[in-house]
Amino acid sequence: MPEAEQKFQDRQIAYKTRIKDVLNSKYIKVEGFNPNYLEINGQKISRVNIIGVIVQKSELDNQKNLIIDDGNGVITARTFENNLLLDKIGIGDVVLLIGRPREFSMEKYLLVETIKKIEPGWVKVRKLELGKDIEQEESNEKEVEIEEAEEEKNMGESQKNKILKLIKKIDKGEGVFVEDISSSNVDNLDEIIGALLREGDVFEIRPGKLKVLE
């Protein structure tokens, strides 16, 4: 591998990820030194950090395969080199695996960079870590939605007040035609007038002519 490419790839973060997110994500192939990546929750992920249990192990020529299960999904991890680390891993072991996602014939797998046996308690820790992240994301999204709704509501009230003041200013006692306030530079004027009519702030003394209810 060219030195420039190696340095670039060394800088990539290994994201803590669920296997199901790897399997359900879109795999993007790119040209040049930039690595291929998965699109997961808006992030471009070219290296993953997964904790799971080895449920199957096989070897064919120079290719060694491990099937890993994290409770959310099952995926194959492969190495095409004489990786002595895999010789120390057996079925039933809980492992931490760092690898690069790959796709062949529409099937995703992980190319092993490093793998080590860890204590079973780390499975629960990882689930709590990822669960907390999702809950935090959902909480943040709800907060943003509430803020946007509040901002939209405040903006709507401001527009209504602007129209009410304009009608009062123009009205000489006989009401104001809608056309007379159409140049008020207010977006969605028809919707705002409709809301004012429904809420009883203005009324039509005749079609197209408005008056503020004092």
Rank of each mutant, 00 (worst) to 15 (best):
N72H: 09
N83R: 15
V112S: 04
K117S: 14
Q159Y: 07
Q6V: 14
I28P: 04
V176E: 00
T114Q: 13
G194M: 07
V22N: 09
E143I: 15
K124N: 11
T17L: 03
D187I: 10
L196K: 02
D133S: 09
I98D: 10
K142M: 08
G42T: 05
G71Y: 00
P35R: 11
K160W: 09
W122R: 14
N34V: 08
R18I: 01
E204Q: 15
K44Q: 14
V186P: 08
K44I: 06
F177S: 14
E152H: 10
K7F: 12
S58F: 10
L86V: 02
L111Q: 14
I45R: 02
G175W: 03
I134H: 08
G52L: 06
M155S: 03
L66D: 05
E179M: 05
E191H: 07
D180H: 04
K26V: 15
I28H: 03
S184F: 03
G156H: 08
K64V: 14
K168E: 03
E129M: 15
E137C: 06
D87W: 02
Y37G: 09
N82E: 01
L111M: 13
I115Y: 13
D87R: 05
G194W: 06
I75L: 10
L23Y: 06
E147R: 09
E179T: 08
N185M: 09
G99E: 05
E150A: 13
T17S: 00
D180S: 00
L196A: 02
F203M: 09
R102S: 12
V55G: 10
L189V: 04
D180T: 02
N34K: 12
G173I: 10
L197S: 01
I68L: 07
E103T: 05
L111A: 05
V125F: 07
S158H: 10
G42N: 05
L128K: 03
E174D: 15
N41W: 14
A77C: 03
V55Y: 04
V55Q: 09
L213H: 03
E214W: 06
F8Q: 10
V94N: 04
K162A: 09
E151V: 07
G73E: 06
K211M: 07
I98S: 12
V112Y: 07
E31Y: 10
L96W: 12
E150Q: 12
T79W: 12
Q136A: 14
I89N: 01
N82P: 03
T76D: 10
N72E: 12
N49V: 03
Q12K: 13
Y109W: 02
